[in-house]
Design a protein around this nucleic acid. Structure first.
Length: 334
DNA sequence: CGCATTTGACCAGCGC
DNA sequence: GCGCTGGTCAAATGCG
């Protein structure tokens, strides 16, 4: 079931957050009506939070600290919550994430590097071998297919495929076991960029879309999202409802090299996979230690935090994966 | 015409 | 070894 899939990553230590997307996309919101969410998640590599979402400004170290220090409060989801326990093939990587911040950072970094190498090599190989007409990828049997670091996030949206500023090409769709909703596979269309993402709906709550990114873009976002959130920081801080255009995945390198990519700064919520998932839907908790302080520091600042706190309703949509999985059942059953 | 999507087939990994 | 499932490929099709 799709549940197991997400929860795999979620349990493993990937982060999960739920956002209530404004449904402007349906109502003729005009423009890039794709549901927008500004939450960024990190999965297996706690440290990679930085890699994925480095602080655009100068608070990088803050993020690092917050990410690593939070490791003690990892929330694990009791297996029995899953109607069907399944082996977690994907999560194997996720779950194997080193528990120690340091090791995670190191392994993560090395992994990334290694992965990149492999990706490049793989691409060349593929292009050669693929030309041999679907001779069926002579994948290396010796070593398991290496997966890139992934992170998943949940979005409450009517739109399956969120516009994140990059161009994606759908290359597959599969029915998900125990889920009425199919899973779609996308690949970044940019040459040489092997980033992939999967999009599927939660079987528990159809309104929730789970997007899993795999790999890192090797290029800047080709598309400057309209409504560039970066142009309306206040609106962003004020809440998701005000944001309309797209979900932007920041690219570390380019972000730093191209500070004009303001929209990349629009990530009010960054969850470390190792942060407590029991972030209550209550905004109170957002203010407490259970909510990564760096998030506020980085993205909201003091004034923004105030705005944040005012957005009680919107923030309530950020719920831990546990709740996402449990609540619907209760609701539906009750 | 070029690009994106759809969709059936195929392969790899894993559990039994 | 077999079957199941996830992931990928690529031809066919659709769309601007």
């Amino acid at each position: 079931m799709s549940n197991s899939t997400f929860s795999d990553e979620i349990q493993g230590n990937s982060f999960a957050a739920l956002f209530d997307m404004p449904t402007c996309d349906q109502g003729g919101g005009g423009g890039d009506q794709k549901g927008f969410m500004d939450l960024l998640g990190i999965s297996e590599y706690g440290q990679s939070l930085l890699d994925w979402f480095p602080t655009p400004s100068s608070t990088t170290t803050t993020t690092t600290t917050a990410t690593t220090t939070a490791t003690t409060t990892t929330t694990t989801v009791p297996p029995q919550q899953q109607p069907q326990e399944q082996p977690l093939p994907e999560s194997s990587e996720v779950l194997n994430t080193p528990a120690t911040p340091n090791s995670s950072s190191i392994s993560s970094s090395s992994n990334e590097a290694a992965n990149e190498e492999q990706i490049k090599a793989g691409h060349e190989e593929d292009q050669d071998q693929e030309k041999t007409k679907k001779q069926l990828k002579p994948k290396k049997k010796n070593q398991k297919r290496q997966r890139e670091p992934r992170f998943a996030f949940m979005t409450k949206s009517e739109v399956d495929h969120l516009d994140d500023g990059y161009r994606w090409r759908k290359y597959g769709q599969k029915a998900v076991k125990n889920s009425p909703y199919p899973r779609s596979y996308y690949r970044c269309t940019t040459t040489g960029c092997g980033v992939k993402k999967r999009v599927e709906r939660s079987s528990d709550d159809p309104s929730i879309v789970v997007t899993t990114y795999e790999g890192q873009h090797t290029h800047p976002s080709p598309v400057t999202p309209r409504g560039s959130i970066g142009l309306m920081p206040e609106a962003t801080a004020a809440g998701f409802g005000a944001m309309a255009s797209s979900f932007v995945i920041p690219q570390p390198q380019y972000q730093q090299q191209h500070p004009h990519h303001h929209h990349l700064q629009q990530h009010p919520y960054i969850y470390s996979s190792q942060l407590p998932l029991n972030i209550s839907t209550s905004t109170t908790n957002l203010n407490s230690s259970s909510f990564p302080s760096f998030i506020q520091d980085r993205h909201f600042g003091t004034s923004s935090s105030a705005s944040l706190l005012r957005d009680h309703g919107l923030l309530q949509d950020i719920v831990p994966s546990q709740m996402i999985r449990k609540e619907p059942k209760e609701e539906y059953n009750g």
